[in-house]
Design a protein around this nucleic acid. Sequence first.
DNA 1: GATCGTATGATATAACATATCAACCCCATC
DNA 2: GATGGGGTTGATATGTTATATCATACGATC
Lengths: 158, 158
Amino acid sequence: MTSQAFEAHDHRSCIAAGVASAVQICAERNLQLTAARQRVLEILLSEHRAMGAYEILEHLRAEGLGSQPPVAYRALEFLTKNGFAHRIERLNAFIACSHLDNAHAPVFLICRACERVVEAEANAAQGEIDRVARRAGFVVERAVREAEGLCPACAPTA
Amino acid sequence: MTSQAFEAHDHRSCIAAGVASAVQICAERNLQLTAARQRVLEILLSEHRAMGAYEILEHLRAEGLGSQPPVAYRALEFLTKNGFAHRIERLNAFIACSHLDNAHAPVFLICRACERVVEAEANAAQGEIDRVARRAGFVVERAVREAEGLCPACAPTA
DNA sequence: GATCGTATGATATAACATATCAACCCCATC
DNA sequence: GATGGGGTTGATATGTTATATCATACGATC
């Protein structure tokens, strides 16, 4: 997946590849990818948009994997803590990671029309956040880089 | 105020200058800086940290300026829409603008220890968000640039 | 088989945000 | 001075997101 991932693609492979990578990484790192956790990852992978915790919870509930908010939040915490998913602060919602392979400083492009969210790779060291932080003597532990606007498909019609 | 504003300073002037600027700008643009709106701005200016809508509402309530959530959210909407305050997405909270003078692409540095939030100026065109968006053909309407970590005062002790 | 760590289950509540409708006020115009 | 429109406010209710807390289950290890 490239940074221009607003384009059409074989989406089944997104899900399959994402789950397969997660399974392998969890095995390597002795992380427990339990049924609920894996299912939440699949749910997130099933769409290139951010999903709220309660939307995810509805799926889990329908499948008998849990019905109370902490069920979803615990799975999401596991996934985000270990890099399998990201939280989109602007939307108070979550999305599967598109770049499981490499450590990264993701930038998210959020289309307000079609709701698609694309995760692109940035070079943190060249970004304005790090430049500003360095100048101020501030130690960055987590950086949020999100843009909201219109994707190439939606911009013309809007 | 510079981008190193974690430093000590005459804080009374922050409040006075901020309100005075807002009064002037509202006059110029025919914006109504009503009692509640001005008071919310003062409340935000009174601390260099982000405040939640309900925390602000408590102040308003104590002063007889309103007691229900919409009162706070309406004032905050006015202030953010017109650039007198900013929303910190990471915290679901709000902070007074430190750079009323110039149009800007703010970067926020959020100290998780002392809770101070500093607004620094970035050069949007040089940032990673805009670079990535340009490459993807994405039209940015709003960009979120927030770093969470430790300020120069808190980093040593943590 | 006792203990420990990790994960789940279950209930309640905190925190953040908006929809809706009625009332009010200013002020521009007739 | 009456009329009407725009913006603002008041009040109620509700929707949405997130966490605290306590209890339970289960496998690993000693």
